[in-house]
Structures are given as C-alpha cells and as structure tokens.
C-alpha cells in the first residue's frame, strides 16, 4: 500500500518536472539567440553565499547575467555574512556576500585553509532614523542624543522625549529597532553607541523590518531605525529624521539619508559599505571572472532598483581596477 502512495507522489513530481523542463529549454534558446552578439560563450558554475542584505543585489546581477551568459550556472545562498565566511574560509564557495568587512577570526580560518581573496566594495546601505508622521517635534537628532537613548545605561531610565532634549514634550518614547541577531543591529550600535552589539534591551525588536514599519506607523511616540529601502517603500506612513554627527567636515547640521548624502559621505555615521569577497582560486576561472566583471559593470544601476545606494563613479573605477589587478596577479601565478 505504501508503495503505491510513494509511486503516485513520484509520478506527480516527474510529470511536473517534464512540463517545466520543456518550458525552460525554449526560454534558454530564445535567450541564446538574443545574446549571440555578445563575446564568447562560457560554461561553468559560480557558487555564491553570504549576507541576506547583499542578496538582493546579487540576485539582480545574476538575473541580468543569465541573459548574457546563459550557460554559466550562478547560484546564491543566504547563510548570513558570518555563516557565509565560515564556508568561504574553507574554500567551499567562490564568492561571499558581506555586509561588513571580514573579521580576524574569519581571516585566520581562510589563511589556515590556504584561501586567499580580494574584497570589492559594491554598494552602500543607509540606515534611516524614522518617527511617526504625527510627531511634530522631532525633525532632527544628533548622534549624541541617539546614543543617550540607545546605550545600555539608558535601560529603564530614559523613558520620556524631554529627557533627550528639553524642548521635546513630556511624553513616553517608544523605541523600535533591528533584532540583536541581525547585521543591522551590530552596525547601528557600532555607529551610535560606539560598541558593536551593545544597547539597551527594552525596545521592540524584530528581525523583520516590515514589522518595525508597522509599529512606528501606528504609534505617535515611536522612534526607530532600519534600512533606507524600507523607508522609501513606506514614505506615506513614516517621517524621516535628520541625523547630525556634529562634525562639520561631514556636512554641517543634520543630514537626511539620500543617494547624494550617502554617496558623498555626509550622511555619517549611518551609512555602511557592502562587499563581495572573491576567492583567488575561483578568480582564475573564466566564468567567475566574467561574472565579477559583469557585477562591477552593472552594480550601479541594479543597486538602485533593489533599494540600495550605488558607489560614486570614482569609487566604482577604483574597485574595478582593484579587481583587474587581482585577476592579473592570480592568472600570473
């Protein structure tokens, strides 16, 4: 009896496979004729893992790359920056997406396994500080004030808006932020509190930024932070707060995050670079070279589409030449 169940399940899946395979092949053919004018056709595989923050950019690049080089099989996982580096350091993946630079321990793992690499900056991610649109008092905030409300010592003590700035009302403040397991949390605490992974614990935390958007948009006394893209998608429900780092060399007064202010580094300190790390052994392979070339050429336009901020032209040129030098050096070995 069990046999027949399994058999029928199998036949369903085989039937599905057959129909879908058919569809896919014709698609491939059409793409091949499209890309016929392109340079030489390559085959092979590019194996990517890493940060879920960088994943949308990699997904976009891989999607476009497939139109040019249909026979190169690009795959991407999302074990997170740390989980990805553990695999990258053992030479199990060709490229690691990273939302922060590699750590010492991860680098020594790579060294121990004779894995060398190049790090390429590909985009910026801005963190937006937002409040409810009904909040009329909070238009800008200094980094020191942010620290005052987020540092571990604030726990249970800083509860009212007027404790932060005397001109603000005597109303409760409700804080919303990324969960402690996320890279966004590490990066916000590093930039604001001065120490990574350290903040007060009595705030509403969620790994899902959409939950934070919901919370802040329905609470007049809320203040929170999350990726700029989430603000852009929910502009009608939220209000952006200008951040002032009180350092005049980064632009005087409070700055709001935008493509311009992140690009010219005046939106400090809440903008971070995103990276891809390429394994040297993989860098020798033609298909990996083709993919990373394509990545560096197209990341600017695609980055904007998925909600991140592209590098400036000079930075793009610099990273491209870094990559070109790297290819030359590994090919010479």
């Amino acid at each position: 009896m069990k046999k027949t169940t399994l058999l029928s399940l199998f036949s369903i899946s085989v039937a599905l496979l057959a129909t879908s395979c058919g569809g896919n092949k014709s698609e491939k053919k059409a793409e091949e004729t499209n890309g016929a004018a392109q340079e030489q056709k390559l085959a092979g595989a590019v194996n990517i893992d890493g940060s879920s923050t960088v994943y949308p950019i990699t997904e976009a690049v891989a999607e476009e790359f497939r139109k040019v080089q249909a026979d190169i099989k690009v795959t991407a996982g999302l074990s997170g920056t740390g989980g990805g580096f553990k695999k990258f350091g053992r030479g199990e993946t060709d490229i690691n997406d990273a939302s922060r630079p590699i750590k010492k321990a991860e680098d020594s793992l790579a060294k121990a396994n004779n894995v060398s690499y190049v790090d390429l900056m590909i985009a910026y991610d801005g963190l937006a500080v937002v409040v409810n649109p009904k909040n009329e008092w909070c238009k800008d905030i200094t980094v020191a004030e942010l620290k005052k409300m987020w540092e571990p010592a604030a726990q249970g003590k800083i509860k009212k808006w007027n404790q932060i700035r005397a001109s603000w009302p005597n109303e409760e403040i409700h804080l919303f932020g990324a969960g402690v397991e996320s890279g966004t949390y590490d990066y916000f605490t590093e930039a604001i509190v001065g120490k990574s992974h350290s903040s007060r614990g009595d705030y509403t935390a969620s790994e899902d930024d959409n939950v934070l958007v919901q919370g802040i948009s329905s609470d007049k006394n809320a203040l929170g932070f999350f990726g700029l893209a989430y603000f852009e998608e929910n502009k009608d429900k939220l209000k952006l707060v200008g951040v002032d780092d009180e350092k005049d060399e980064n632009g005087k007064g409070p700055m709001t995050p935008s493509i311009e202010s992140v690009k010219n580094k005046t939106y400090a300190p809440l903008a971070r670079p995103l990276f891809i790390y390429v394994n040297s052994a993989a860098g020798k392979r033609k298909e990996v070279q083709a993919f990373v070339d394509f990545y560096m050429d197209n990341t600017g336009a695609l980055t904007k589409q998925v909600g991140y901020i592209p590098l400036s032209d000079e930075e793009t040129a610099k990273e491209k030449s870094k990559w070109a030098d790297f290819v030359k050096s590994v090919s010479a070995q």
Binding site: Y55, T58, E59, A62, T75, G77, S79, G83
Partner: peptide
C-alpha cells in the same frame, strides 16, 4: 539554511 541550501538557482 545551515547546510547551505540555495535561494537563487536557475
């Protein structure tokens, strides 16, 4: 996710 299942695969 831990064993490395993919998300982008064509």
């Amino acid at each position: 996710i831990v064993i490395g299942a993919l998300l982008y695969i064509t």
